[in-house]
Amino acid sequence: MIQIHCPYCGETLPELEFAYAGEAHIVRPESPSEQTDEEWAAFLFLRDNVKGPHFERWRHAHGCGRFFNAVRNTITDRFYITYKAGEPRPDLAKLLEESK
């Protein structure tokens, strides 16, 4: 069971309190009606699914209820960082450097 740091509660807690919420930084387009079918399908379904550092969302479902973002290594399941929704995508190169 992995452990997750909730950036809102400021605590590291067991995975059981959290719900995974898919890839992060996929923004719902401002004007959906102007989207082509391809663009809308990409928004709905296409995912990076990377092996390695993965930008993803979690929800502290049994805690504060907030959605937040994270960078986690999908090979080791270790988190590099979690950060609040709306904050910019962290510099991955820097994160990897720091984690060494």
């Binding site: 969302r57 929800r59 479902a61 209820g65 959605f67």
Partner: peptide, 13 residues
């Protein structure tokens, strides 16, 4: 509720 929270928190904060 999860779906509503998702849209509220992340699309329409």
């Amino acid at each position: 509720l999860t779906m509503m929270e998702d849209y509220l928190q992340t699309e329409w904060p």
